[in-house]
Every structure is written in structure tokens, then in C-alpha cells.
Design a binder for these strands. Structure first.
Lengths: 350, 350
DNA sequence: CTCGGTTGTTAGATCGATCTAATGCCTGTG
DNA sequence: CACAGGCATTAGATCGATCTAACAACCGAG
């Protein structure tokens, strides 16, 4: 029963371009040009072929097309962790922009795992994707970029980048972003700053740490060595780090966090210790995910528009695909500080 | 300059199976069987061919393979809105499970837009995806399902389903879930319940509303007609609905929400009105996204493990792909109530 | 009346894998 | 010694589009 239906559909009488062409009384070549909306075709012919396609229920066969043309309208999107709302937004921005340009996106979450990432990149290459959005995770991302280079696949890096590569990068100015936060808390009178950063080896971690160091240097503040933490990028580890940091007499009066998720972790720690964000300790995040505005107290954070970065990255990648020879430049997006409640009002140190 | 590199890569001397076969001293057919890890091949031959592939830097050409076999190792994932953390988690669960089985997933966000959804489905069919995860949005989703049916593409519906279809559905027991919440607030002494639901026409909206109606009926509670709202699925609209609902003398003493996101919107409204969740009004969400446990007060909500649903859906779809004739049944996941703070302790009505 | 040029169309080769059906080889058995 | 049957391998057709290079028809200019 089902077998019959299947042979009917997958069997001999599949509607191919040949069938359409015959039905419309033209050659297969002509029909092919019609599919691709070529302007070589007379409008009258175009209409006739399109009508036949509709009448016969023609379905374009992507695989056949890509085999011959060595091209696909498919992009890869390799992202570290979609369960982070920031990346979800980024992914959504990218997908939106690609859809506008009639591209499909193959989505993959590396879960910050280098081995997984390598497998994914390989499969994307086999799939002959037209380009890849790449948010590198793991230590040997350079090898993966090299593999893409060999395959001749255009790539843009988003949010993170591996050093010494000529692959364009679209992301925020991390150094400047963190400094905005520091300027703010210092202006409010905070002096004992701490930083809960991401793991070493990621460009974003290192740049944000650099921003912290430059920021405190600018204000001639002394920072205790163990006030600078480096943990995995999630709420839990940030909370644990904060518990250690805050449960000591000489605790910091301001904490700058790698991102909002981790700032939430710190808030949890404070709550547990009976401390009030914005009063006992000022707190600054990074990313400005939608939740940040809604927590109590609302999180003061460095805002970088995820959807916008996605859109920009898509534009650069499309451009690279359209003309691969042109060298494209990085885009560094200027962040801005969203001042809300988690740093409180001006503060006189004890 | 780049042109040269390109012809080098894309030119005549591309490494195809033929080249590998010649290098290893076997036929192309044999090499093909090796790629597919067939057990027809002698282990010794297998090794030799694999060595040649490595030596020559062979890259499998997916398009060629799929053209001939009419099969891909690619799945489509059509989701309503990834900016909702719940769907992000669901997507991540699906992607994870698919990756295990060596499938790639093409991801698309319909943004609850029926027209967009239709385009996406068409493109997925052209792409000859092996199967589709489908979370229907828009009114004419039935047509889209029909298109997939005609193309012979296996589908599973997730979280929502269109009625009168034999396409398997994987999702939570919405009716029972909402009732769990109602039982809880009633047990605590709440009597004036309100419901802020999603838009009509979505199965999930209607089932959760049904759950509400059954729940209040069971406890013989009378619910004012305008205590039942139906708004778009986002924080803002929920907040606006709640403002109206709470800013009246006969305000409800408990609000059941379509999902957590909307419950957060209600919390915002309460905050604005100087009301305290769990004290003035009990609040119940749905989904149990990670944020729910972390807000203050922590949200009492109906938990359905998104990653788990993703995994289950993946299993069902894989199964359907493996043997399309077998009819697969729906999977209804039993939700459970996570009791936290937003409903407070027992309550004596005024 | 022929020629260059434009416009629309086309035949046939081609992309790189998989599939079908057949082959040679070996071993054990009647 | 012939033959059935399993094992490993293979030749050649095939999937359905695109590409190349050429062709027919027509027009206006010399």
C-alpha cells in the first residue's frame, strides 16, 4: 500500500526538468534557464514553462544542481552554545538574513567541544556549503579554518576569532566594552573591582580580560591577584566563583562579568549570602540579553546587538561568496552601556 | 591570483572516488563500498583504500551521493521562535541527537509566519531532506504537511500539531500540565483564578486553555469571562494583559500562564503595580526554562524537559526514516510541577 | 544580397557518486 | 570431477540538473 505510493512518487515517472521541457515544448536547457530566472529567455516562453512546472508539480532537485554547478545555496552556522540566549539571538539574526537572500542554513552546536567541531566542519565541507559562519571553540580551531580554506569555502568568524588568520571577523569591541563598565562603576565611587572572566584561549575571554586590565590601569586602581577569576562560561561556575569572592572580609565592591549569564550567577550567589546587588556590590554584565532588563534588580550591562551582528556577518559572508577574490575587512561593533539598577547610585567606600 | 588557486582546487585534478580507486588499485565500486563502510569488503582492501583516501585528501561529495541514491543525511528543523529559550533548548536537543546519528540539521525559524513557513518547507523538499521536525505555525500548516507528504518526506510534529493528521506528534500533555498548576494553587487556598493564554488556532494554546477549563471545573470554581485572556506568545503582551487584569478591585488571586516567558511578563506587571508574586497573587508558568528557577521569586512552573522532547522526537523521526511503512505513535510526555516560590504558602482569601 | 550582430534556443557532454547484475575465485560435497 | 554457493570485486548504466559552444532566425547596414 505504502510501497505502491512510494514507487509512484520515487519511481520512473518522476517529474524532472526533462518532463517539464517536453510538456512545454522546449528543450531541457531552456527549462533550466527558466528555473534560474535567466533573462535570456523570452517572457512568453518563461510563462509557458512556469505553467508546465506548476501543472506537473515539478520539484527542483537541489542535489543534481549542486553536483553540476559545484555550488549550493546552503550555509553552515557553527556556534558554541545555543542554550545561551545571546547565541540563540545571534543564530536567529543570521538565519533571518540568510533566508532573505534565499539561503538555507545548516546549524550546529559544538557545545564548546573541539572534537565535535572538527567533525561538523568536515561534514559541512562534504556538503559543499557555500560558506560558513564560525564561532570558534576549542584549541585547534585554526586547523578547522585551514580545512575550510583548502576546500575553498568562504568563512566569517563571529564573536570570537583565532589569531593570525586572514578570515574576517565580526564581533564587538570587547576591550572597549568592558572599559565602559569599569568607567561607570568607578564614577559611582567603587574602588575594589573584581573580574569573573571566561576560560583562557578564547579571544573573547582574553579581550575582555584585557579590557579589565586596561580599565583598572587607567583609573590607577590596584586589583588583588585573586580578584580575577577565569571559569567556564555558565551560570553555575560564575556563582561558585562569586561565592568564594564575596564570602571574605575584603570582598570586592564591584564585579565585572564576562557575560550576562555569569552575572546572573553572581546575583544568585549574592542572594544566597544576603547581599544586595547595586548596594553592597555593583555588578556589570556583557551581551545585554533580553532577560537582563527584567531581573530584579535590572542588570547594568554592555550591550551588543546580537541580531545586528548576525545581520552584519551575513552581509560580509554573502559578499565573500559573491566575489571571493575581494578581501573583506573585519567589522568591530561599538558596544554601549545600558545603565540599569545593578550598580546602584553613587557609593562611598567603607 | 586567487583564480589560480581556485582552478587548482576546483579544476581537473579534483580528488574523486575514481582517483582514490586508481591509487589503491581497486575499482570505483569498491572504493564506494569502502566509503560506506560496507562489510562486503575485505578488511585488507578496506584499509588500503582508506589509506589512499587519506593520502590524497579525498573529500566525499554529498551532492553526487544524494543525486544517485535519492537520500540525504540531512534533516530539517522548522521552529516557531528560537529567541524563546525553550525552543533554543529544544533545538539543541534535536541537533545533538541528530549529530549522534550522523545527520546534519537545517535549521529555520518561521517567526510564527505562515508564508515564511511555506517557503522554508518548499526549500527543504527541494533539498531532499531525509525528514523534518515540524513545529507548526500559521493557519495553513496542514497544506505544508500535505506538501511534505506528497514528497514522501517523513515528518514529526513537535510541541504543536495540526489536527486530523496521521503525522506523529511529540509533546507534553498540555491539559494535564495546566491542571497540575491549578491543583496546586487551589490546594493553597486560591480561588479567583485567571488564565493568560496563547493565540487561538495553535494546538498548544487550545490544549492549555482546555486544561484550565477542566481544572477549574474539577474544583467547581467560577471564573469570570474576562479573566481568560488570549494574547501573542511574548513577554510584552502578557505584561499588558496582566496590567489590565491586576489593576482592578476584583483582581484574581492566581494567574496561570501559557508559558514561563509570559509569566515573567506578569511578574513585571506586578512589580510595576507594587504587587508581590506568591503573596498577593500566585503565579504558575509552563516549560520550566532555566531562568525560571533563578528569578526572584523563583517561578513555580510546569516542567517539560525540552532536551528530552528533542531527543524523543529525533528517535521517532530516525525510526520513521529507517522504515517508512511502520506507523509510529504519538508520544505524550507527562509534565511535572516544579514547586518554587511564586505561589507562596497557603493562603486565606480576603 | 550578403554580412555582422543580437536574441532566443538547443544538443550533448558533464558533475561524482551509487546501483544492478554479473564476474571470477575458492571451498566443500556428492 | 562437476557443481552449488558464498565471498570479494567490478563494469557500465544511471540519478537530474548545468555548462559549453553552437545554431537558427531576424534585423538593419553596407
Amino acid at each position: 500500500m505504502d510501497g505502491k505510493t512510494l514507487t509512484e512518487k520515487r519511481g520512473q515517472n518522476r517529474v524532472t526538468l526533462d518532463v517539464v521541457a517536453k510538456h512545454a515544448g522546449v528543450s531541457r536547457s531552456t527549462a533550466s534557464l527558466v528555473v534560474r530566472n535567466s533573462n535570456l529567455i523570452a517572457p512568453e516562453t518563461h510563462e509557458r514553462v512556469r505553467a508546465s512546472m506548476k501543472a506537473l508539480g515539478y520539484i527542483y532537485n537541489q542535489s543534481a544542481g549542486s553536483l553540476r554547478s559545484q555550488k549550493t545555496k546552503t550555509l553552515g552556522m557553527v556556534i558554541a552554545d545555543v542554550s545561551n540566549p545571546f547565541y540563540a539571538l545571534l543564530a536567529s539574526g543570521i538565519e533571518w538574513a540568510c533566508h532573505q537572500q534565499d539561503f538555507l542554513t545548516i546549524f550546529a552546536d559544538t557545545a564548546e567541544d573541539g572534537g565535535r567541531q572538527k567533525m561538523i566542519i568536515d561534514r559541512l565541507i562534504q556538503h559543499n556549503v557555500a560558506g560558513v559562519f564560525f564561532c570558534p571553540a576549542g584549541d585547534n580551531s585554526a586547523d578547522d579554518l585551514a580545512a575550510l580554506e583548502v576546500a575553498g569555502t568562504p568563512v566569517v568568524q563571529i564573536m570570537r576569532h583565532v589569531s593570525g588568520q586572514k578570515v574576517p571577523y565580526i564581533g564587538p569591541d570587547n576591550v572597549a566594552g568592558v572599559q565602559l563598565g569599569i568607567d561607570h562603576v568607578v564614577r559611582l565611587g567603587r574602588k575594589k573591582l573584581a573580574f569573573i572572566g571566561g576560560p583562557a584561549g578564547k579571544s573573547s575571554s582574553e579581550e575582555r580580560l584585557e579590557g579589565f586590565n586596561q580599565g583598572v590601569a587607567k583609573h590607577r586602581l590596584r586589583v588583588k591577584k585573586d580578584f580575577i577569576k577565569s571559569v567556564a562560561i555558565n551560570r553555575r561556575e560564575a556563582m561558585e566563583a562569586a561565592l568564594v569572592l564575596l564570602d571574605r572580609p575584603d570582598r570586592p565592591d564591584a564585579i565585572i562579568c564576562y557575560n550576562d549569564l555569569m552575572a546572573f550567577g553572581v546575583m544568585l550567589a549574592m542572594q544566597r549570602l544576603g547581599l544586595v546587588p547595586g548596594k553592597d556590590v555593583a555588578l556589570v554584565g556583557f551581551d545585554d540579553i533580553p532577560e537582563s532588563a527584567l531581573w530584579t534588580p535590572a542588570l547594568t550591562t554592555v550591550s551588543i546587538d546580537a541580531r545586528n551582528i548576525g545581520r552584519l556577518a551575513a552581509r560580509v559572508l554573502m559578499d565573500k561568496i559573491a566575489n571571493p577574490s575581494r578581501t573583506s575587512r573585519d567589522i568591530i561593533v561599538e558596544p554601549k552601556l545600558m545603565i540599569r539598577e545593578s550598580c546602584g547610585e553613587s557609593f562611598a567606600a567603607a
